[in-house]
């Protein structure tokens, strides 16, 4: 069973790679180059912050595009090319087919995020070199440079600040959280595509849910605290939103990490667990629907 899932997953990844989906990642390179040159007017610590923001933003945006688009075209393409008939006529369960496809997309996302992270690290490393050169230039021209131990102390402190800002080990948490969000988006697209009849419908609906997911926490707060004051319609709307739409806003804690604030691992694990379980539920629902879909 695992074997068949992996065969389908590998094939899905191979398809994406041979169809040059990863070329989209060049876009990431362009964004990063544009970002780091566009912001060269501001001070170095701000530059580093901006580059970090844009890097993570671009990984998230490009990743979510890959996730939603590649899942949305999976079933329509399989049905249109009738490849699904040949596969399902083999000793393959429908659940294995669906799960294999999903794992393939997750592998694709892993590959994309890994490649983008490497490029991101390279840009940050370059920013660090620039930053350290700028700090040194500042101090070399200060009177007393090389003689005053206090000045040396301050210099070392400034250098440490830049190095800490660039080489923040918490960036691993940030990338993991972004990845978890992408996997959730892919699972949402998977669920929608099992009952959708067109690519466009899947893409628009999933993007809608993804965006609304960012406002779900606000809706939940209103529903829980002022639910009684709402009209029946409003209450029902808020309730549906709070109960059905995943909370994407919690993942914006990545912004905190980017600002250099400490987000402890236990909280990150909690979020990762939440997304993993949510993904599992979405996949289970997809399977239940796909099982009786006419193909």
């Amino acid at each position: 069973m695992i074997g068949r899932i992996l065969v389908i997953a590998r094939n899905t990844l191979l398809e994406a790679v041979r169809q040059k989906v990863l070329n989209v990642l060049l876009l990431f390179g362009l964004v990063m180059i544009a970002a780091s040159s566009y912001f060269s007017q501001v001070a170095i610590d701000q530059q580093i912050k901006f580059v970090k923001d844009f890097g993570c933003g671009a990984i998230g945006l490009i990743g979510v595009c890959i996730a939603i688009l590649s899942v949305a075209q999976l079933l329509p393409q399989e049905l249109h090319n009738r490849t699904i008939y040949t596969i399902l006529a083999k000793p393959v369960r429908r659940s294995e087919f669906l799960l294999g496809k999903f794992v393939g997309v997750v592998l694709l996302l892993t590959l994309s995020v890994a490649l983008m992270s490497i490029a991101f690290a390279a840009v940050l490393w370059w920013q660090e070199t620039q930053g350290l050169a700028a700090v040194q230039a500042d101090y070399v021209h200060t009177p007393g440079w090389g003689k005053s131990p206090e000045l040396t102390n301050m210099y070392q402190h400034d250098v440490a600040q830049i190095v800490n800002q660039v080489r923040d080990p918490q960036m691993v948490e940030a990338i993991l959280l972004i990845f978890a969000k992408l996997v959730m988006a892919a699972a949402m697209a998977m669920l929608v595509s099992t009952f959708s009849t067109s690519f466009i419908f899947t893409v628009i609906t999933t993007c809608g849910i993804y965006l609304i997911g960012h406002m779900e926490s606000a809706a939940r707060d209103v529903w829980l605290s002022h639910g009684a004051q709402a009209t029946f319609g409003q209450g029902l709307f808020l309730e549906m939103l709070s109960l059905l739409v995943p909370d994407m806003n919690s993942f914006t804690i990545v912004d905190e990490i980017l600002d250099g604030n400490v987000v402890p691992w236990w909280h990150t694990w909690n979020l990762l667990g939440y997304s993993a379980v949510y993904t599992g539920v979405l996949l289970a629902l997809s399977e239940l629907i796909f099982e009786f879909r006419e193909i």
């Binding site: 779900e216 926490s217 909370d247 604030n261 909690n270 979020l271 629907i289």
Partner: peptide, 28 residues
């Protein structure tokens, strides 16, 4: 399907409230 949704919805809600509380404690 309805059962899965009905079981998951309260768990989801409680989990999200927990996450939000943790984030509040982090002053986020």
């Amino acid at each position: 399907i309805a059962l899965v949704v009905c079981l998951w919805a309260p768990i989801k809600l409680a989990w999200e409230i927990g996450l939000e509380r943790q984030q509040d404690e982090l002053r986020y």
